[in-house]
Structure formats: structure tokens, C-alpha cells
């Protein structure tokens, strides 16, 4: 019976199998790692909030209401208002957009750069490894913040610059971690076995090395998300981030919020809590993902 359906609709069953494996993955996530599941849900909520900020925000992010300056949280203004009379809840929603875009894009770029450099140098070894790693040494000997300041000074502040610079900075630095993971996997005998059945380098890398270095890749990515959000905050603090009045969490946290710390603490608390929650939940989800993808951690199905 299954035989017949299998033959008549191969592509359909393929899709079904993918869907059902995704569903079983979600079920396992919730059952085996509820903390990670909460992290995933929180991440999704923030992503959703960021994407639909236009619809969700009760006020414009730059809408100034002079009569409502530094109002504490209330039913009208959920997170209160700032010193210019702007609704902080709306600004947090819009800020999520930029902060999350920057965090995800820069971390993704950084991780891809790390994986490419790490695999090439770790797997091929020899002279290529030698040369590339000296280049990485040189790169890492510059303080991050100096490179950032120089780049921003030359091309001006903006989201794209921050993404590219942070992506490259963290990417090159992280390649060491990936390289060391590749080195330890490469020496295992299943890699020799894969070569002995006639696999080409790309095949061995793609099918045998990459799946086995997923844990460090995931951890690297989730760590980067937190780090990028924080560095973006630091840059805004120095006036090198996304220029005001565009709201970013870092900017809201470190801008005029400092001057009003005693008068209106909610100005710093709201973006600070959001930042903490996102970083924490991304880390939780990353850990859960790492555990679930490791076949040794799961029981027999």
C-alpha cells in the first residue's frame, strides 16, 4: 500500500516527509527543552513586533507630544514617554526593527565568514592555513572599536556600514573557533572512510564535516547576536550608530536616557529589558537547537 503511493507521488511524499520531520522537531523542542521553546517563541514575538511595528505602534516613533513629557508608564503610554514626549513603547517597537535586523544580519554575515574561512583553512591545512591564519592574527590585533570608528568616520554612520563592519570583525575572529572544530573532526576516521568511498573534497566538507561542526556554529551565532546588539548600543552611545532620531535600543538606552535617569528611569528600563530578553532568549534557543541537532543527545525514536 505504501509502496504504491510512494511510487505514484514521489515528490509529494518527499514534501510530506519534510513537513512531518519539521513538526516532530517542533514537538521535540517543546517536550525535551521547554526553556529553548520559550526562547524560540519570544524571539518570534519580537520578530513579529519588529516586522509589524507600523501596525502595532500606537504612536509614530517620532511623534512629539509636548504636554506628555516624561510621563511614567500608564494605560495611555505603556512604557511611559521620554523627555520630548515621545511614546517609548512605539519607539521600542520601531527600535526592535533596526536592532534585530542589525543583530541578525551582522551575526549571519559573521558566522558565514567564520565558517568559510574556518573550513577552508582547517580542512585544507598546509600553506593556505598558515597564510590565512597570519592574516587573521593581524586582523585580530586591531582593537574592534578603532576599526569601527575609522570606518564610520570615512563612510558616515548608518545601518549597512555597521552590519558590514561588525560582520567582518566578528567573522574573522570567529574563524578560529570553527577552524579548531574542523581540525578535530578532520582527524576522525569517518572522514578517511568518506574519502575511501570516493567522496570529493566538497562532498566530504558538505556532508561529513559541516553537520559535525553545527554545535559550535550555532553557539557562535547566538553569542554574536547578543554581542552585536550590545556593540550597536555602544556605538550609538559614541554617536557612531544609526543617527537619531531613528530609534535603536542602544541609542534609546544610552542617549538622553542617562540625563533623565532619576527623573524618568523607564526611559532606560524599557529598551534595556527588551535587549536583555532578546539576547537571553536567542541564547536559550541556540542551546536547545544545538542539543536537538546532536543525535547523541536524543533518545531512541
Amino acid at each position: 500500500m505504501t509502496e504504491i503511493t510512494y511510487r505514484s507521488k514521489p515528490s509529494g511524499t518527499q514534501l510530506m516527509r519534510k513537513l512531518s520531520s519539521f513538526r516532530s522537531f517542533v514537538v521535540r523542542l517543546f517536550r525535551e527543552n521547554p526553556l529553548g521553546a520559550i526562547g524560540a517563541v519570544v524571539c518570534l514575538i519580537f520578530l513579529f513586533a519588529a516586522i509589524f511595528a507600523d501596525l502595532l505602534a500606537p504612536y509614530g516613533f517620532n511623534q512629539i507630544m509636548p504636554s506628555n513629557r516624561t510621563k511614567p508608564p500608564s494605560w495611555q503610554f505603556w512604557f511611559g514617554t521620554d523627555h520630548l514626549g515621545r511614546d517609548i513603547f512605539s519607539r521600542v517597537l520601531y527600535g526592535a526593527r533596526l536592532s534585530i535586523i542589525i543583530a541578525l544580519a551582522a551575526s549571519m554575515l559573521a558566522t558565514i565568514i567564520s565558517v568559510v574561512i574556518g573550513i577552508i583553512t582547517g580542512y585544507l591545512g598546509g600553506k593556505i592555513d598558515m597564510i590565512a591564519q597570519r592574516f587573521v592574527d593581524a586582523w585580530m590585533s586591531f582593537p574592534d572599536i578603532v576599526i569601527l570608528i575609522v570606518v564610520v568616520a570615512v563612510v558616515g554612520p548608518g545601518m549597512l556600514q555597521i552590519i558590514l563592519v561588525l560582520g567582518c570583525l566578528y567573522g574573522v575572529a570567529g574563524s578560529r573557533i570553527i577552524r579548531s572544530a574542523v581540525l578535530s573532526v578532520r582527524e576522525q576516521s569517518f572522514i578517511h572512510a568518506a574519502q575511501s568511498i570516493g567522496g570529493s573534497n566538497t562532498r566530504v566538507i558538505w556532508r561529513h564535516i559541516l553537520p559535525n561542526i553545527m554545535p559550535p556554529i550555532i553557539v557562535l551565532f547566538t553569542m554574536r547576536v547578543g554581542a552585536v546588539i550590545l556593540v550597536e548600543a555602544a556605538l550609538s552611545f559614541l554617536g557612531l550608530g544609526v543617527p537619531p532620531p531613528t530609534p535603536t535600543w542602544g541609542g534609546m538606552l544610552t542617549g538622553s536616557a542617562r540625563n533623565y535617569m532619576y527623573l524618568a528611569p523607564w526611559m532606560a528600563i524599557a529598551p534595556g529589558i527588551c535587549l536583555t530578553i532578546v539576547v537571553f532568549s536567542v541564547n536559550m534557543f541556540g542551546d536547545a537547537l544545538r542539543d536537538l541537532l546532536d543525535p547523541r543527545m536524543s533518545g531512541t525514536r
Partner: peptide
Amino acid sequence: RAVRGNRIAMIFQEPMTSLNPS
């Protein structure tokens, strides 16, 4: 590569590590 695994196959010493765990 077309010979390896196809015309000549090899079995390794340590079965515990010669299979890809993932």
C-alpha cells in the same frame, strides 16, 4: 575517486569512529 568505493572498497579499523555520528 571513481575507483575508491566503487571498484575498491575499504573497511577501517575502528568501527566506533568510522561512521559519521550526525
